[in-house]
Amino acid sequence: MTISKMLLSAAGFAMVAGLAQADTSGKRIALSNNYAGNSWRQAMLETFQETGKQAVDDGVVAAADAYTTSENQATEQAAQIQNMILQGYDAIVLNAASPTALNGAVKEACDAGLVVVSFDGIVTEPCAWRIAVDFAAMGKEEVDYLATRLPDGGKLLEIRGLAGVFVDDEISKGIHEGVAEHDQFEIVGSVHGDWAQDVSQKAVAGILPSLPPVVGVVTQGGDGYGAAQAFKAAGRDTPLIVLGNRQDELKWWSEQHEANGYETMSLSIAPGVASLAFWVAQQVLDGADVPKDLTVPFLKITQDNLAEALETTPEGSVANVTYTLDDAKTVISDAK
């Protein structure tokens, strides 16, 4: 009897100890990614692998594996997710090829007891968690910043992204909201730069001759350097261009600052959001109460941290930040 009592108490102790430690040390997390063909996605995969490896080494999770489909197709990714269920993963961190076409596979995963956390390319299936980007807020923040720098206002040029894409509509909506609020500003021209420096440069060069002097340029990222080159080629004064965290943009800013004290702001979504999604998945597995809809903070670069950001950003890449478990906890508590 005493032995069974001892066994019981030992079992009880083991259970308590198990609860006190990370509950997730035996859990396996997989990243399902649909595309790896640009610098942002490459940086995203790298961050996930670094974060995952560290977490495995620390014994927080048992595995953190990254999978990318060989073709950027929803049907392929659906099959990939179903394979992950078979492989016995406990959670899937997902950057989806389509917001809706993966819902069937995601539902299968949820029904099989997996935790699905989608980020960047989010899915609408209600059983999944979403780490979304408030693109409209990003656009509005640009105008808010311009209002602090140029209290007298003036005329603005807007560079948009790829026509017909959700992200482009959202950022532009935010910019126009901002302009409505700060009515000292007026958008006098709008071009599509497709988030690429060369396209932006051509588009801005094309519209510049028809524009009155502009005091600021609002952008969507990946287009600021091209815009600056177009202004220079046209012999115009460089306006206040809001940048988008690309390495060439930051380098140009830094050079301008040294030459003539140019100051601006740069903001975009860090590819490290994959590490945030990883920690959110870990928290859900851990039993934390996590709201289904979370919002990613922007990565903002100002004059104060420009040198540091430029140093850590590889050439041709985009400024990044690796989120930690504490960052994830902050994001979760902010959403409650």
Binding site: Q73, A74, S98, T100, N103, K107
Partner: peptide, 16 residues
């Protein structure tokens, strides 16, 4: 059948 599985569609869903 594809829509029955995926629950929704997009214009490029079956190009492969």
């Amino acid at each position: 059948a594809l829509v029955g599985l995926t629950t929704s569609a997009d214009a490029n869903i079956a190009l492969r």
